[in-house]
Nucleic acid binder design. Sequence first.
DNA 1: TTCGCTTGCACAATCGATGGTGCATAAACT
DNA 2: AGTTTATGCACCATCGATTGTGCAAGCGAA
Lengths: 352, 352
Amino acid sequence: MDQRVKKKATIYDLSVLSGSSPSTVSAVLNGTWRKRRIKESTAQTILGLAELHQYTTNLQARGLRRSRSGLVGLMLPVHDNRYFSSMAQTFEGHVRSRGQCPVVVSASRDPEEERRTAETLISYSIDQLFIVGATDPDGVHEVCEPAGLRHINIDLPGAKAHSVISDNYEGARMLTEAIIRRFSNDDPLRPDELFLFGGRNDHASRERIAAFHATKKALLGTDPDDGVQSSGYSPDITLRAFEAFYQSRGKLPRALFINSSINMEGLLRFMAGRPAEMFSELVVGCYDYDPFGSFLPFPVIMVRQNVEAMITKAFELIDEPPTAPQTFLIAPELIQPRSALKGPLDSLKDIA
Amino acid sequence: MDQRVKKKATIYDLSVLSGSSPSTVSAVLNGTWRKRRIKESTAQTILGLAELHQYTTNLQARGLRRSRSGLVGLMLPVHDNRYFSSMAQTFEGHVRSRGQCPVVVSASRDPEEERRTAETLISYSIDQLFIVGATDPDGVHEVCEPAGLRHINIDLPGAKAHSVISDNYEGARMLTEAIIRRFSNDDPLRPDELFLFGGRNDHASRERIAAFHATKKALLGTDPDDGVQSSGYSPDITLRAFEAFYQSRGKLPRALFINSSINMEGLLRFMAGRPAEMFSELVVGCYDYDPFGSFLPFPVIMVRQNVEAMITKAFELIDEPPTAPQTFLIAPELIQPRSALKGPLDSLKDIA
DNA sequence: TTCGCTTGCACAATCGATGGTGCATAAACT
DNA sequence: AGTTTATGCACCATCGATTGTGCAAGCGAA
């Protein structure tokens, strides 16, 4: 511990110490030494020295030479949300089990930021990119393609690369049906008592809205065309949508289809400061699963997207030889109110 | 678009195209060209060509040369949790505003994994490392130090580098007091009706438990020594703790101090399948804030740690010249039940 | 002894960008 | 005119690891 910062040992240092050439040292340390017919004893010497001097490979140098970095990227819209954070958690497990290094970044649903972020990751020669919930997946594709970067869309599909998404139509159909069936035959839900809040003009929202309409029509006969209040993926805009609705009608609907947990937070904001009784008769369906959301003081039926299956499928696809872009649907699961499901954290070692 | 993968343009390509030397091209593209007295017109030519050929710097090469990468690392225990995911979200904003690239990874609260992860990040020459909630911060320090990597502890303190943590004692004091005061004088809470679940032998838990005991003693006179059920940071262990408690006493306590939102998920698991009425009289304090958790069917008083302030402080410290390690306390905030607070997502551009 | 094959390793180019140094040419000054 | 100073840029070593190629020593066979 002489110097404050003793420079890290390199293959050149070990080369001098061992009396072998740098190339031999390199081969020994990266495991290709048998192929290069290095003597066992030479290898052992070098490995011993490496250990002794705490050698670690400079991955930037290796990356530069190999033009691959060992990094695998996950681009999320945002971190702060249980759907996406469970995506990150699951992704990390997969990447680590392959001996690579996961890198998670968010791009705020901003197409420009998405492209810039992809550019940056490419500049670090990441090996693969998983694009989750991108606003403009094809824009990101245009950046990845010329760089030869393997990539795949998750959650929101693109036209130019494989996509693995949740079966939004079926999920929304189940959810809508479950909401409607939640009401007894004595006092059934009327079509104008069920509204959808949230979503914008992306593939997932469109599918969900379509299923919402179709299922309402199928089960309730009709579907008034003002049943959808788009409010993007912003709690605050959703809050304002609820306030506007409440303002104009004097009450909330009896039942809500909420497009995502982020929009659900808009409902929470609406609830804050208002009496709990106001919501005691409410029935909510939420397209996303959040364990705490499942235990609110009114029934919340949720849809859990199968993150594990999506990530697994995505890893399968990204390694395959390229074919024409396809979209793969993963079935989501309907979750009854008051359910506390296991998540990716449960596969971690428990320590008390 | 001739080739499938047309190689990215390098400074050498631009050098040939522009008739300037690679070093000139490099200087122009990295902005140091005025310092190197490059003619304005030469610079413009090169910049034009760079634009035309979509040049982007190979950051691995730059990183190798400069032995800095422009990457800033955040090491979390886990992603899938609103406290840590809001940490990630906030961190990203700060790093991006400094023109660097955030990299978020998790290390599962495993000391070995924490060190390995730090090693890996160092191999990529990251510029700074923010270590959040590490089980063994000083172990990570031992890895960072010899590499000359600036690093700082957040959430859980270490002895060998600056730490920015939440004021756990004060937070737990406020929370315990708030729980107790929640009960009316007609039917006040007895000392043996308030239990703490969760936590393990880390600094945060110790502080919180100390404050819990002290506050109980101060306000309720005594504090039975079995008032604490350690159950780590695992929903399932916490679930088992609740089951065991319930098994042996036939009921839950009237009031609970829950050490973190992860432990709170253990309570959810206990609730699942049990009648809601069983919990209607319960009062819960949770050391962590989760918007959905705030609206459960019983009062949940929460403590929100000031993530923004912690990250801001950490960025201040990490840039300063090194001094003897200090720990900085950031005041957390008591959050009344049924509060839907703004979070880091709210500073994103809202799009409907 | 000589040819040929295997073994074991060294050499050197390369990945792309950076930055210290030095050298022309031009402008300014005595 | 001769010297100094400024301008504009090229050259080259370097960061650390990888990998194709080549070559000497050793050994067996002819």
